[in-house]
């Protein structure tokens, strides 16, 4: 009996091992297995954090597992990305990112990995840029600002988030195409820049619409021009860059990425789940309320767009001498 048992043990082990292998193979498409962590590098309450949380709620229901937003600040997203790349490529860790990540890659500050090591799952929303002025500024419209800047090169100070950031680069692009010279005043965040312009310390701010809507309604800021292709509902009278004769249409964007190497079928499951989450009434309501633009883009297109943005930023940063 004892001998029999002793012989049985290895047999049982082999059977068990084979069984798990077969089961595992059968479960490959059986995703998700456990909770999904959605990393976010921006502080809670920021636009991308809000997007992540708005998306996580319906996505949890669709995927049937909790989708938990985890804040991992540091290095403008470098720390969150390093953490993501340290996880298994199984799709259980995703990352709520923005166009600013492209700036970071373009800046060459990250030496340990490149933008190609991430998989850009889905673009969720776009957000136009807007130029707005303090009422005490010597101009009330974008046209007047351009004329003023032409007469006083470099005298127009424009405040906004960061240096060599999406906001900075877009402002420089605008100035170039409009044939003017501006002086960029960097702030650590969009809200700080808006505050400085509200106080009249910097005459113009370059930001996203949601941060200034209330101030425009109260008459404390004047929206000058918007980077979207069409005028937006919040500022129906504000001209687009194109209407001004500045051939430029561009957006800030936010989306979801994961680690490259996640199996294609898992990428599809995640992409479809987030797409479905974007179509829920609650998410649409949030998009409308915050004057964001729905910006769905699939995995392939988003990856292409992100790569192009990195390359373009590299060029502009070189031109700026940054």
């Amino acid at each position: 009996m004892e001998v029999f048992l002793r012989k049985l043990v290895p047999v049982a082990m082999v059977v068990y091992l084979l069984g798990t292998i077969f089961l595992a193979a059968g479960q490959a498409a059986d995703f998700p297995k456990r909770k999904i962590t959605m990393l976010c590098h921006s502080s809670p309450g920021s636009p991308v954090d809000l997007m992540a949380r708005q998306l996580a709620e319906p996505a949890s229901k669709i995927l049937g597992v909790p989708v938990v937003v985890e804040t991992k600040t540091g290095g403008a997203g470098a720390v969150a990305m390093a953490y993501l790349l340290g996880q298994e490529a199984d799709g259980h860790t995703v990352y709520a990112m923005t166009r600013s990540n492209a700036d970071l890659f373009a800046s060459g500050q990250i030496k340990d990995f490149t933008w190609k090591e991430l998989a850009y799952l889905i673009r969720v929303q776009t957000d136009p840029f807007v130029l707005a002025a303090h009422p005490s500024a010597p101009f009330r419209t974008a046209k007047e600002m351009i004329d003023y800047a032409k007469k006083n090169p470099g005298k127009v100070k424009v405040g906004g988030f960061g240096s060599a950031s999406a906001h900075h680069i877009m402002a420089i692009k605008f100035a170039k195409k409009a044939g003017i010279e501006i002086t960029w005043v960097p702030y650590p965040g969009g809200a700080a820049a808006v505050t400085a312009t509200l106080g009249g310390h910097v005459p113009v701010v370059h930001t996203n619409p949601a941060t200034i809507i209330k101030h425009v309604q109260a008459g404390n800021l004047i929206p000058l021009a918007i980077s979207a292709g069409n005028r937006i509902a919040a500022f129906p009278e504000t001209l687009t860059y194109k209407e001004l004769g500045v051939a430029l249409e561009d957006y800030h964007f936010r989306g979801i990425a994961t680690k490259k190497g996640v199996p294609d079928d898992v990428i599809k499951i995640l992409h479809d789940a987030f797409k479905k989450a974007m179509e829920t009434p609650d998410f649409k309501e949030y998009t409308k309320k915050n004057d964001l633009l729905p910006g769905y883009m699939n995995h392939e297109d988003f990856t292409k767009l992100f790569g192009e943005t990195v390359e373009e930023n590299k060029k502009i940063q070189k031109e700026l001498g940054l």
Binding site: S43, P44, G45, S46, D49, L50, R53, Q54, A191, V194, T195, L198, A210, I213, K214, H215, Q217, A218, N220, Y286, K289, N290
Partner: peptide, 25 residues
């Protein structure tokens, strides 16, 4: 003004926006 003066009030502002209230002037 709807301006966050500190990190905590910034998060609170985010929460209010989430609840559909936009603090402002």
């Amino acid at each position: 003004l709807g301006i966050p003066g500190s990190n905590v009030t910034a998060v609170m502002l985010g929460a209010l926006m989430m609840l559909g209230l936009q603090p402002g002037p």
